[in-house]
């Protein structure tokens, strides 16, 4: 097991090298000039040139890449061209924001998705099955920005029961420790901030969780349907076991493997792909950070952030693989 984990961790190295080369090439291939986007249209050529010189943008690509890798190896993620802020420091604030949102969205997606999938499979072709699976179809195809705006319009403008955007109401005091606001407010016993942060999480959480929820529900249903046809389920039924026990203990555990794969993948996707949700709900997370960096040709931010996200993605996948064993003890790691 340990050998397996270390082997997988070692495999991170070529993956990250690949990711860094691809990111570096792509961002440098897009036309555009970071000096220009930073200094604006009013800058003189002399100013642009001096900034390019300062940022080392005139060096050959291979030298620039080498410098980037060198810094990373020393644990330095670099400095943003636009804001002059250390990228490590910015990620320390933005990654927890995205993680908090993603975890909440996945919690919703996993709980509701699995429950709906199981019930739909057990009561195949019932009204619940039809409604929830039609709902899931809608869920997969809903444009997030539309769903987000409709929710804001309904819950904030019309009913005025949920805050429209942001992570906290301006002026709410919070002492940050981990930058996970729910966790920080609990740790410091600040329940006003906890409630405020929680209310702010609801709408973006639903918006972000809808697609994975729908995918998980559909996956759980089809996987459960297959398992429920197996002989050992009939045997268990014939033995006179309680239906609930059959479903959750015997069927779901076996049906869960493909669902787990989907959860792992979706979790990784949400981490990097929350740009739309973060934009609509003014969520100061990593998706928007990278998006703005791409627009502003902030090369160091794009490179380092994608590298960090890729690392997390790989680790999440590793964790998913390790969890397989819990659900299917026959699996052996080599």
């Amino acid at each position: 097991m340990l050998k397996y984990i270390s082997k997988r961790l070692l495999m991170l190295i070529p993956v990250l090298i690949g990711v860094s080369i691809i990111t570096f090439s792509l961002i440098h291939l897009i036309p555009g000039d970071p000096a220009r986007s930073m200094l604006g249209e009013k800058a003189t050529e002399a100013q642009l040139e001096s900034l390019r010189q300062e940022l080392g943008l005139n060096d050959p690509y291979i030298v620039q890449y080498g410098r980037f890798v060198g810094d990373i190896l020393q644990g330095d993620l670099g400095q943003s061209i636009q804001s002059k802020e250390s990228i490590g420091y910015e990620l320390l604030h933005k990654l927890p924001a995205t993680m908090e949102l993603t975890l909440f969205a996945m919690l919703l997606a996993v709980t509701i998705g699995i429950l709906a999938g199981v019930i739909a499979a057990v009561k195949q072709y019932s009204w619940f099955d039809n409604i929830s699976m039609t709902g899931a179809l809608f869920g997969v195809s809903l444009p997030i920005f539309w769903l987000g705006l409709m929710m804001i319009w309904f819950f904030s403008v019309k009913l005025n029961i949920l805050p429209p955007s942001g992570r906290l109401t301006p002026g709410t005091e919070i002492n940050t420790i981990t930058n996970f606001y729910l966790l920080d407010s609990l740790l410091t016993g600040n329940f006003r901030a906890f409630k405020d942060a929680f209310l702010h999480l609801i709408m973006p959480g639903i918006a972000l969780g809808t697609i994975p929820m729908a995918i998980i529900a559909r996956m759980t249903r089809s996987s459960m349907l297959e398992v429920m046809k197996q002989d050992y389920i009939r045997t268990a039924d014939a033995k006179g076991l309680k239906t609930r026990l059959i479903i959750f203990r015997h069927a779901l555990k076996n049906a869960f493997l493909p669902v787990l794969t989907v959860i792992g993948l979706q979790f990784g996707l949400l981490l990097g792909g929350a740009v739309l949700t973060e934009t609509i709900f003014s969520w100061p997370g990593i998706g928007r950070y990278v998006y703005l960096a791409v627009l502003g040709r902030d090369y160091p931010v794009v490179q380092s952030t994608i590298l960090v996200v890729a690392t997390i993605f790989v680790l999440v996948n590793l964790l998913t693989d390790l969890l397989y064993k819990y659900f299917d003890p026959r699996i052996r790691y080599e």
Binding site: I87, V308, I312, L315, L319
Partner: peptide, 23 residues
């Protein structure tokens, strides 16, 4: 599973700088 993910990521972000100073 969810908490484990949370922990892994907190550990990752912890490497990016000195969080105790910035907090």
């Amino acid at each position: 599973l969810l908490f484990a993910m949370l922990l892994v990521v907190s550990a990752c972000t912890g490497d990016d700088g000195d969080s105790s100073n910035e907090s």
